[in-house]
Structure formats: structure tokens, C-alpha cells
Design a protein around this nucleic acid. Structure first.
Lengths: 220, 220
DNA sequence: GTCTATACCGCGATAGAC
DNA sequence: GTCTATCGCGGTATAGAC
């Protein structure tokens, strides 16, 4: 069973890859809006413009689609936090992280909602990722932040809750998009919304947490 | 049609009310975890300890259950923001609001997840509430905050994004509970988690946004 | 008011023709 | 590789006995 699977992978044609791409794109559209249990293969097939059996030829079960989708999205999702640099300036690092997360929320809202749905429902498919790689990554970055606070560059604070608050505030604009738009009114354009959010969040986190020795050095 | 509905409401017995309560409690448990489309009446009946037809005697459709549940939860959900007082001290008001929202996230996480699921899925059942009462309430409170900034009590900032950021950071501890617990490790107790969150968020928002003339008056 | 039985449909998945 | 047809199951909802 392992050998045919490998062989199948090796002789995967360009057309096959395009079809799989097409299916995963449709699956993202549906899963991100309804969650795993609320989604049906019919809906995904409709969006993909394929018949249901044809779709099941490429992914033999609904769970296989979901797993392939989650795996692919996970790679790009942890990247911004990884590039958090211990040697950089705390203000620059935090500002850059907020910007990247906001850009992700703006440009890939369905990916954000896919995870939100998964975690809301108890994270049955990614629990091991949360407890393993994600926890390890956050632990490492928490140490970076703690070093900043101990060096007097950042106001003393719990680094874990700092990370949680950046996650929640930025992802909010993807996950709760309909609510944000309803409250701000339809006059508000997408770019305005995110520029406003960026300005507010940078001010909140930088002014609120980062101590400014740099400014003293510039104008003493 | 309106008259029998009213009559039915009037002669509702205590037992009927208790059963309905029991059903809505079970519906909250299920809907909050799986969302509307992902939930089944079987699951709700199981949790409620009743037979499926019996449950459908009290609520004739799945949507009726969901609607009754949403309506009831909505009442308590908007209350904390309503008590936001223009004449109060900004620091006290914002601190109090954060505390109340965190207490709601701690004590009623399922209610929070019910809304999160509903909004993630496009808010099909509460769109009118978001565009009507919720928007009106937020508009009113945004004016309160703007008055504070113009009076020099609060750093200039967009009041809407301030409210969004308080919503997202506090609800995060209910909606993304499994992720928070996975990252912090199982050693972390519920009360520790929320005490830590409260300490961090109060410091972030108060130190970050509220200007402190009071402190000058106390120790000049 | 509450149960058993069941109608009826849409779901995930498979078989087999082409 | 892609289709039509279909299976078996579980979904919502109803009918009718008790």
C-alpha cells in the first residue's frame, strides 16, 4: 500500500496537480465558511465545477480533503512568528509582526477562518500541532520577549498574553469581518479598514508596551 | 396565527418552561461547538436526555431552537457595553469593561462561541441585529470615547478599532480556549489564565491609551 | 404530552459504463 | 479520468398509538 501511494505521487501529472489545486481552492471556500461538519462534498464539488464522484477520485474522503488543506495552510501560517528576531529592535519587530498578521488577515481571510472554525470546534484535527510545533514556537518567542523586558526595552508583561493579544486583534478583522463591516457601515472600504486597524494597533502596542530609549538618544 | 401563538405562550406551564430550558441548554452545548449546519437534532436530543420527537414537540424546527437560543443570549451580551458611562473616569470605565468582558468569557464561553460560530459563518441569522442595534450602540459609545480624546483624557485613537480590540482580546480566551490551553500547557489553571489575561490587558489598554492627569494631581 | 414508527430527503461513498 | 446510477446511512420532520 505504501509503494503504490509513493508511485502515484511520483507520476502525478501537471493536470492532476491543477485539479487538486482547484479542489483545494473550492474546499477552502466551503470549509472556511461552514466548518468541517457543516460542509458537504456536494457544495465543494459545485464550487470546484466538478462532479462529486470525480472529486472523490482525487481525494477519497472528505477528511482527506480537509487534512490536505490544513497541512498546506499551516506551513504559511506559522511563518510570520518565526521571523520574530531576538536581536532586532523590539518596536520594529512588534510593528512588523502586527503588519504581517494584518496583511494575512486582509489577503487570506478564508485561511484565517478555516483555523478559527477548526479551533472553535475543539481543534480535533490539529491538536497535536497546537501542543507540539506551535507551543514550541511560542515558547521560544516568549523567551525573546522576556529578554526584551529584562533589558528594559519593553514594559514588564506576560509574553504569552502579548502574543495572544496580537493574534486575536489582527485575526479579528478576518474572522469577524461581517461584524466589523456591519458596525463600520458599508461606506468603509477594505483598504481603509485595514489602514485604520494598522494605525490603531501599532499605536496601542508600541506606545503601550515599548519603552523608548531610542528617542532619548535622538533628542536628549 | 398570532392569537394561538399568544395563547400558547400564556398557558405555558412550569414543566414546559423547564423542558424548554433543558433543550436550550443542550442546544447551546451543541450549537456552540459545531455551528448551526454542523449540529444535528440527534446530538441535542442526546445531550438533553430526551427523544428526538419529544424535542421537536417543543421546538418545531432546528432553526426555531437556534433562533430562540440566539435571542436569549443576545440580551445579556450587549449589556456590558451599554453600561459604558460618558461621565465616568476613562481609566475606570475601560478597565471595568475589560474585566466584565473577561468574566463573560470565563463564565459563559459557550455563549461566546455560539456568536463566534454565527459570525464566522456570515451571520445569516443575526445580520439585522449587527446592522441595527449593535451598530447604534457602538456608534453611541464611539462618541463617548471621542469626547474623552478631545478632552485630552485619552490618547487620540479610532474609537471603533479600540472597541474591536477589546472585543477580540477578551473573547479570544473563550473562542480559542483549546489553543490557549495547548500553548500555555495543561499545568495552567482556569483562574490563573484569566488573572494573567486581566493583568496584561489592563496594562496594555490603560498604559497604552489613557493619559493620567489624576496621577499628577495626587503627587505633584 | 410523550412515545414508536416511519416518510422522505440529502449525505458520503462505491460500482460500473464509457 | 469522468460520467450515471445507486447503495446505505443518518438527517429533519410527521403520523398516529398510548
Amino acid at each position: 500500500m505504501a509503494i503504490p501511494r509513493a508511485a502515484q505521487t511520483l507520476r502525478r501529472t501537471r493536470i492532476q496537480e491543477e485539479k487538486e489545486e482547484q479542489i483545494l481552492e473550492a474546499a477552502l471556500e466551503v470549509f472556511s465558511q461552514r466548518g468541517f461538519h457543516g460542509s458537504t462534498i456536494d457544495q465543494i464539488a459545485d464550487v470546484a465545477g466538478m462532479s462529486k464522484p470525480n472529486l472523490l477520485y482525487y481525494f477519497r474522503t472528505k477528511e482527506a480533503m480537509h487534512r490536505a488543506l490544513i497541512d498546506r495552510v499551516l506551513e504559511n501560517w506559522l511563518e510570520p512568528l518565526q521571523s520574530f528576531d531576538a536581536d532586532g529592535d523590539p518596536g520594529q519587530e512588534i510593528r512588523g509582526y502586527i503588519r504581517r498578521k494584518l496583511e494575512l488577515a486582509r489577503d487570506f481571510p478564508r485561511e484565517s477562518r478555516l483555523f478559527a472554525n477548526e479551533i472553535l470546534q475543539g481543534a480535533p484535527h490539529i491538536m497535536t500541532v497546537l501542543e507540539g510545533p506551535l507551543k514550541a514556537l511560542v515558547d521560544a518567542k516568549a523567551k525573546v520577549i522576556r529578554a526584551w523586558t529584562e533589558a528594559g526595552k519593553v514594559r514588564p508583561c506576560d509574553p504569552y498574553h502579548l502574543i495572544f493579544s496580537i493574534w486575536s486583534t489582527t485575526q479579528h478583522y478576518a474572522d469577524f469581518d461581517v461584524q466589523v463591516r456591519a458596525v463600520l457601515g458599508s461606506a468603509d472600504a477594505l483598504s481603509d479598514r485595514f489602514d485604520g486597524a494598522a494605525a490603531f494597533l501599532e499605536r496601542l502596542f508600541i506606545d503601550g508596551l515599548v519603552l523608548a530609549p531610542a528617542r532619548d538618544e535622538i533628542s536628549p
